[in-house]
Every structure is written in C-alpha cells, then in structure tokens.
Design a protein around this nucleic acid. Sequence first.
DNA 1: CGAATAGTGTCTCTCAGACATTATATG
DNA 2: CATATAATGTCTGAGAGACACTATTCG
Lengths: 246, 246
Amino acid sequence: MTETEYLKAYDSSKYEKPSVTADILVFTINEEHCLELLLIQRGGHPYKGRWAIPGGFVGIRESVEDAAKRELQEETGLWGIYLEQLYTFGKPDRDPRMRVISAAYMALVPRETLAVQAGDDASDAELFEISTEPRGLKLYSKKRGFTLQEQDLAFDHAEIIRKGLSRLAGKLSYSDLAFEFLKQKDCFTLYELELIHEAISGKQLDKGNFRRDFKRKYVNTGRAELLEEKSSKFSKSPAACYRLID
Amino acid sequence: MTETEYLKAYDSSKYEKPSVTADILVFTINEEHCLELLLIQRGGHPYKGRWAIPGGFVGIRESVEDAAKRELQEETGLWGIYLEQLYTFGKPDRDPRMRVISAAYMALVPRETLAVQAGDDASDAELFEISTEPRGLKLYSKKRGFTLQEQDLAFDHAEIIRKGLSRLAGKLSYSDLAFEFLKQKDCFTLYELELIHEAISGKQLDKGNFRRDFKRKYVNTGRAELLEEKSSKFSKSPAACYRLID
DNA sequence: CGAATAGTGTCTCTCAGACATTATATG
DNA sequence: CATATAATGTCTGAGAGACACTATTCG
C-alpha cells in the first residue's frame, strides 16, 4: 500500500483522529515583582473546580499558533503578545474523556496591559504568583487569598507549567525574554529589569554585576540606549532610564 | 456553555479533527565523519518522487512519543534510540490533501547500528550528507550520487530539517547530545568526539582547546574516565580511550 | 537616623581562543 | 621525507562572581 492509499484509507474516517488543543501559559510580572500565571477555574467535569491553563481546540482551517493567539485574545483581550511554542503533550490518557493532544505555548505579557483585562470578580480567571519549592509548585492568589498545590491543577497542567518555568529560566540569560514584560513602557530602569530576572530565575542577583553585564551586552553593542530623563516613579532616588533599540 | 458541554458537542464529530503525525529526523554520523539524515522517497502523490523525513500517524491510543518510536522502529528496525521532541508544525496548508499537524522528533543514531538496517537497494530510504550553505540546505547521497536541494523535499520538511539542525548545534555545547552517536561503542577517542562536534557545529575546532575542555567538563568531574587500553583502529598513532560514566 | 535604591569600582579565578611544541605512526 | 594524528603547554583577554564603597531620597 502506498502512502497515498494509506492516507485515503485513513482519511475516510476509518481511523479515529485525536483532538488537538492549543494551551497557553500566560506569564506576567506583578507589582510586587513576582512571576504570575493566569489560570482558569473549571466549571464542569472532569477536574471540576480545579484550575487549568487557558486553551482550546485548534480549528480545522486554523494554524496551531493562530489558535493559541485566538485563545489568548479570548482570555485576555490581547493581541500582538510575544508567543512561543513550548512543547506538545501527547499521552493518550491526558484527558479522561477523549484523546486530546495539547500544543502548549507561552505568552509573556506586560502587567500594565493585562491588569485591565482580566481578574474581575465575575471572571473565573485569576493570576497566581508562582513559587517553586522542593516539594513542587505553589501558586498563590493574593486577591483570593489561597494557595494551589500541584494536585489542585487539572489534567497534566502541573507538568506543563513546570516545563514552561524551566524553559523561561533556561532562556533568560541568552535571550531577550525579560524585555517582553517591559514592552508597554517607553523605558525602564536597570533595577526594574533586574527584578524581572530575579523573578524568573528565582535567584537573587548581584546589583553591580547585573548592571555591568547589561551594559556589556546591550549598551556597548548599541542594542540599548541611555535616555536623558531620569525616572522617579519606581524608587526613592531617581534612576537612569534605558530603552531597547528596535 | 461549560467546557464539558463544549467538549461533548465537539466530541460528537460535529467538528472536524486534524490528523496528527509523528515525523522523525533520523541523524547519524557516517564513516567520513559527516552528519547524515535519513530520507524516504515518496512513491505517491502529492510530492511524488520527492524526499521526505519518515513519519506516520499517531494512533488513537498511542502517545505521540510512542508513535515516533514506532515509526523509527519501522524505518530502521531500532529500539531504545535517543529521541527528543523538536517542534510541532501546525499550519493548515502543510499537506494539500487534508489537515495534518506534525509533531517532529529527532533521533540520534550511532552509525554502526543504523548501517545494517537501512539503505539496501530495494528500500526507498537513503542517508544523505547534510551541508548548510548560505542559499539553503544541500543533501548529498554518496551511494546514489546526487544532491537534493530544499525544493526536492516534500511538504515543509526543509523547514523541519533546518529547525532540527539549528537545535542540534544549539544544544551541542551544553548537553551530552554528541555522545549519542557513540553509544554503541564501549569507548571512544577524543579525536572521534571532536569530529562529531565539528560535523554538528559545522565549524573546525581547536584540538588543544577541545581536549582541555573535555577534561574539565567530563574527566575532572568524574563523568568520564580514561581507560587502560589504547585504540589504534581510528588513526595512525594509538590514542587514549575514554568512556562515559553511567 | 535607617532603609532602600542608584551607581561605580576592584579583585580574583575561570574560561575561551589562538597558537606553539613534541611525539608517534604511516607510507 | 611529508603527513596525520596524539598530547600537552602557553599566553592573553574576556567574563563571572564576590564584595566594597558612596550618593540620594524617603519617612
């Protein structure tokens, strides 16, 4: 049998096809400079009452990435956000009802943009501060005042979140990921940027070394520039403002 | 409508589901120390006569990774090979006949194992030496004596191959990828390992620095050990043999 | 004042890249 | 002999980590 014949046979609904979803880890950094993740409380079975990352089915004429963008728009109202494919989760028992293969994406959203859109009381969506402990994930909602453990998450979403966190931390040093959280601002201070790096890496960084390295990597190479004005918004004493070029 | 209701509606074949395939980049390093890729010539339409990476549909009760393993076994007869998920390609027009979402994997196979299984004349499978040039990929089969360009590849497989190559090169320095090509051997020489690194990175490396760095990273940390015997198989003057621990 | 942030400087150790040197085997 | 590989050594500059120091502003 040729592959064409095989495909035709397959195509005639002789073989069951899996459903494919695009699920999104929506990350942001809150006012206290903690990494936050958007979760949605499930209203129905299975995993009723548990929390899940937003997502939905990929349309038959829609690219997987477009489906992720659409879901992000439906959940947060946002377009044009940085989106990166994370991993595809394809175990047959991920969903107890049916076969679902999930292509997971990560979205990095500046908090200023996200705040106005999500998190109203009527919504089942909420932002959770992330802390990784030796025993596993902890997700804390300041607004609702409770903490989720891994077992409070639906499906294999704890695994997806862990994978996303590890990818974020891994790419932090050699990519421009961190700046995605500052996209809405016309400029930023180095302390601001340092706090983002600390939130993602989970480590306290050395102030002097961080500034030195930023200047080496971005200012000296012309990828960032020092602005005239100083910012007093962020801290007690006014700090220099920088802006990424391009 | 709750998500459960939505799922039930969806499940009742009201919505068309995409087909999902697992496609595999089977890499090996040949006797001339070049990076090679396994391709299969398509016998039917579309892309009849063009070359494609092996792959096939994911069974409804089969994990995506298991499907990749099964396909690898069917094409090469091999089990227990290093397999890593690369990326999921999900544009709606990837396949002109039907909606196909492809989860691409990379397999790194020692040439000693692969040689006996694939590449006989009756087969439509062949190994191609990879060279990346400014104008794009070149794939050369020594046995068949011709060179493929990107347009000789089926579907979006040129894009998949490029992504795989870039992932391989990117992970080379901070992972143990290269050793996968030596898995069948009980030991290896440093020159052998250096040639693998050069094949993957496409760059000539400094002998002295490579040896120094290997000792720092693997020998001094106890992750590799120097064996008593020396190897004369590989080169003119006998060289020290090393073995990875674990 | 103390606490938090801004900003700079310094010291050491490691590492990476470039390159030289000598030995050993083959043909 | 030339050539290919084996194995080690040296020099330099860049980079990472640890830490010290001073200035500014707020309460």
